[in-house]
Every structure is written in structure tokens, then in C-alpha cells.
Design a protein around this nucleic acid. Structure first.
Lengths: 143, 143
DNA sequence: CATAATTAGATTGTACGCAATACAATTGCA
DNA sequence: TGCAATTGTATTGCGTACAATCTAATTATG
């Protein structure tokens, strides 16, 4: 009997498990900022693009489509973290911009990366090596 | 300005992206078996435990709670892939067992691991090294 | 042996993730 | 210019994830 179908052998299951573990580890930290994990990812993009970014470009960065982003962004708008404005140059485009509250939240998030790095228990070198391997894999999987 | 909050620097975002990429790559392959990705994970456990397994033990293997598993298993029961029976020794326990259809589906899945391995573009050695690193990380994150 | 504590599942409510579809704005081209 | 194709976003529907809560069954303890 072929045993290649064992759960423990699958790379995909490791990635599935790790993603869930990460979400759970971030959850209590992000709760202080009243953010969910995907909302935190959105905020990281917006902190980088303070002039604003279209839903489309945001989706390209996060690899998420409008079916996910539209309701997610509406919830964030309701929390007054972001504003949504039609682009006057192209009315199809919705530009996402941080509110003052959204901008200020960055300070409260500055400590998170170091904190989460510590949780991984990896040395800086191991982390970098892992990141490189994962980037290569993302590339191979034809992102 | 601290730039540790860049999306591209985050290990968590790589894992988040890879998990989604994996799901998308499996989706068309699993569509032939009429399985979703989490259902495929459940089937792998059941193919290993043909005598049956409790919902609790299944949840421990997959790291999923009853809030996720109960409806998921009901959908699988509706597809007649599995049966759900109360354990006569302990009426609180629900035992999950494959139907004949569920058992036979394994043959149709045997080709999937090799196929997906090919997609990764990794050598067997690189894959094994990556799996080891990820297992260590899973361990560190306190699975 | 009665009752409190524990355990196994189910249910409810919220939030993704994504396919499929719809629609309005823009662009391309005859 | 007129109209088809394309583009950007929104909506709908389904399937996870998971916290919180509930119920029934079992176990522990005085």
C-alpha cells in the first residue's frame, strides 16, 4: 500500500498548519489594535502607501480579489481606520487612504515584528534562509 | 522611520501567501474528486484510520475544532463519503468512518502527491530540508 | 448515590477566501 | 462617432476557521 497520502508527509499540510498557527499567535497581539490578521496585512500596505492605493493594486499586493477585499475594507471603514474615495481621474477606481486614526495606529504596531520574530525561536540567519526558500517556492508555484 | 512593518519582510505573509497558493493549485486537482482542500485533509486521515476515528481525534490531527469540523463532516456525509455513528461505549463520541465510496476514492487520489511535488519545482533533498525546517518551526510555535 | 466538574459535539455569529456574476466607466477600433 | 471589449469594483453564495455558548453524557468526589 502506497503511503504517500499520509498527512504528515505533505508540504501543503505543514503550510496549512503554520498559517493557522501564525494567525492564532498574532490574534491576541492584534486584538490590542482591534485588527484581524488580514486587516493587519492591509494596514501594512497602507502604512507603506500613505498617499493612497487603489483596491486593485492593494489586491495585487495581497493576492486577494474584490470578493474578499470589498467587505473587508468596508469593515475597516466602519472602524474609521480608512477612507474610500472614487478616483476623479477614473471613476471605476476606488482609492483607499488611511485616516488619522489609521496613521496613528502604526505606532502601536511597531513592536509587533520583533515580538513575533522572537516567538519563532529562529536565529536571524535561519529566518533569512527560510524566507529565501519560501520566496523561491512562491516563485515556483507561479504567483 | 522603522520599516520592519513592510509586508515583504514578514514570514507570516509568506506562509499566508503560500497556503493560499497551495489551495489554489490543489483546487482543480481535487475538483475531479469533488473534494475541497480541507476535505482532502480529512480524507487523508480517514484513509489512514480505516477502522474509524472520533471527531475529537480527527480534530487533534488536523488542529481543527468542532465548530469547523461538524459542518464540514456533515457536508461530507451528504456526499456519502463518510458515515457518522455514536460510539456505543461512550455516547458523547461520534465515530467517523469511510463509506465504500470514500474508501474507493483513495485510488483516484494516489497520483496527487507526486503531481503536486512536481509543481513545487523543488528537488527531493530541498523538499526534505524545507519540511524539516517547517516541522521545527511548527514545534517552536507551540503546536 | 447525589451532585459538581469535566468532556465530546453541536450551534451561533463573525470574518475571511474565492468562484461566479453583475454593472458602470473607460478604452479600442471599425 | 458608435459600439464592442475591457477594466475596476461590488454582490452573492458556499465553504472554511474560530470564539463563545449550549447540551448531553460521563466521571469524580464527598
Amino acid at each position: 500500500m502506497n503511503n504517500n497520502l499520509l498527512l504528515e508527509k505533505q508540504l501543503c499540510f505543514r503550510l496549512y498548519s503554520l498559517n493557522k498557527l501564525m494567525c492564532r499567535l498574532y490574534a491576541p497581539v492584534l486584538k490590542d489594535l482591534a485588527l484581524t490578521y488580514p486587516q493587519y496585512l492591509v494596514m501594512m500596505v497602507l502604512w507603506q502607501y500613505k498617499a493612497g492605493i487603489s483596491v486593485k493594486d492593494l489586491g495585487a499586493k495581497l493576492d486577494l480579489d474584490s470578493g474578499t477585499l470589498s467587505p473587508l475594507l468596508k469593515r475597516m471603514e466602519k472602524q474609521t481606520l480608512i477612507k474610500r474615495e472614487r478616483d476623479t481621474k477614473d471613476e471605476r477606481v476606488v482609492l483607499i487612504k488611511l485616516t488619522q486614526k489609521g496613521i496613528e495606529l502604526q505606532q502601536s504596531a511597531e513592536h509587533i515584528p520583533a515580538k513575533m520574530f522572537a516567538v519563532t525561536g529562529l536565529s536571524p540567519e535561519k529566518l533569512q534562509a527560510l524566507n529565501l526558500t519560501l520566496d523561491q517556492l512562491i516563485d515556483n508555484l507561479g504567483d
